[in-house]
Simulated scan of single mutants.
Amino acid sequence: MKICTKCILPETYPGISFDENGVCNFCKEDEVKKKEAIVNFQTENELKNCLEKYKNINKKYDVLVPLSGGVDSAHTLIKLVKEYNLRPLAYHNDNGYEHETAVNNARKLCKALDVDLVITQPGSTFLKKLWKYLHESKAYGIPSCYVCANIIFISAVEVAERYGIKLVINGYSKGQAQVMKDTVMGVNMLKAMYQITRNNGDKEFYEEFVEKFEKLSKVITYREKEDLKKNVDLDKILVVPFFIFKFNKTDKEMLKSEIRKVFNWEHIPYSFPSRTTNCRMNWLNTYIDRIKIGYCSYDIEFAELIRSGEITREQALEDLILNPPEGMVEKLADEVGVNLNSIKPLTKNKV
């Protein structure tokens, strides 16, 4: 399969084209965007000053910080406590497929920082149906983990709303932040998911799905400096990806070294991509996505990390090698109710 010689996006990615050197149009467009980019925060002190307005809106918490148990979100929480002097409520979402090491990392860190931690473990029925319907659908260009990431994003918003917190700062990498900011992908995903959920005849699931995504109307996703310079909108929740700023780097090894000065962070035995702390369902989702559409959500994220200089192309290709533990994909498929033999490549742009 042909992939971009600069990033790693494959020829199956929607809207992609290549020049005579094998460089994709998204890499070329990125160069233009950088030249035309709106000025962002140039220094960390400037960002800190803008966040001051969110202090003491709530009697107990200034910010909600989602914790995966990985190095990025752990580093984010440590910085916000020790350097930004914010009062966080930490939040961990256990979807039933998290490794216990990830959950323990969240617990240990919050104990070390004396930070309150909320762990939610919602019933697995909704997510199992979500994965099953996605995997059995003919919708092209909707990576499974991208849809699931939106559900986790919404869950954090629900917790913030419950506790009256107006600011959420997560540990999204620059790649994740750009993917979540992609309004075209977001709209296409919603259209496809509404169609999928309507067509399967599961009214209860459809209504729950719609109800979840309606909560996005209460969210402002950080896109530019002005989003933080404005006065606080008490009717909205501002979500800020911490690593979107140029002075925050997602260097896994450096971050690992820094957070281990605070607590005994442990790597989970196996995860995809490598060097991450993701749930086991990533194995199945990626396996099926790469058969159906030839790429997964992490290929999109890592392509952006390469463009932003956060990771080398060689390291990205290494991290994205799919090598699941023996029997893992089959076990997960059985739990979700998906017949792996029925998964076939889709025609590009077919919905």
Rank of each mutant, 00 (worst) to 15 (best):
F263Q: 12
V168M: 08
F263M: 11
D334P: 10
G123V: 12
K166L: 09
Y97H: 05
L86S: 12
D19Q: 13
S155K: 12
M189L: 03
L167H: 00
L51A: 00
F245K: 09
K350R: 10
D62Y: 06
P269D: 08
K348P: 01
E52N: 11
L134Q: 09
T76K: 10
F242I: 07
A192S: 07
P10W: 01
Y172M: 13
K225G: 01
R162V: 00
F302G: 03
M193E: 07
V159P: 09
L216C: 03
E208M: 03
G164C: 07
Y54M: 09
H267G: 12
D30Y: 13
Y270K: 15
S297C: 08
C279H: 10
V168K: 02
N45E: 13
K252G: 00
G294C: 10
V239H: 01
E83N: 12
E207P: 04
S73R: 07
V184G: 04
N49Y: 07
L127T: 08
E52M: 13
A316R: 04
D233A: 10
S137R: 01
D235R: 15
A102D: 11
W131L: 10
D235V: 11
E36I: 15
E224K: 14
A303Y: 00
R290A: 05
K181F: 06
F26W: 03
L64E: 05
F126V: 13
R275P: 00
V63R: 02
V351L: 15
V63H: 01
K350S: 14
K28C: 03
L322W: 02
L130W: 03
K174I: 03
A102L: 12
L130R: 06
K55I: 05
K344R: 09
M1K: 05
K203A: 09
E211Q: 10
Y295D: 06
K138E: 02
V232F: 07
T221W: 05
M281L: 09
V232I: 13
N199R: 13
R313I: 03
R290E: 14
M189E: 01
K33R: 14
D227V: 08
V336W: 01
D319E: 12
P345N: 06
N339E: 05
K79L: 10
N278L: 09
I38A: 14
E335C: 03
L190G: 02
K48M: 10
E310Y: 06
K55N: 05
N21A: 15
S173H: 07
I57G: 03
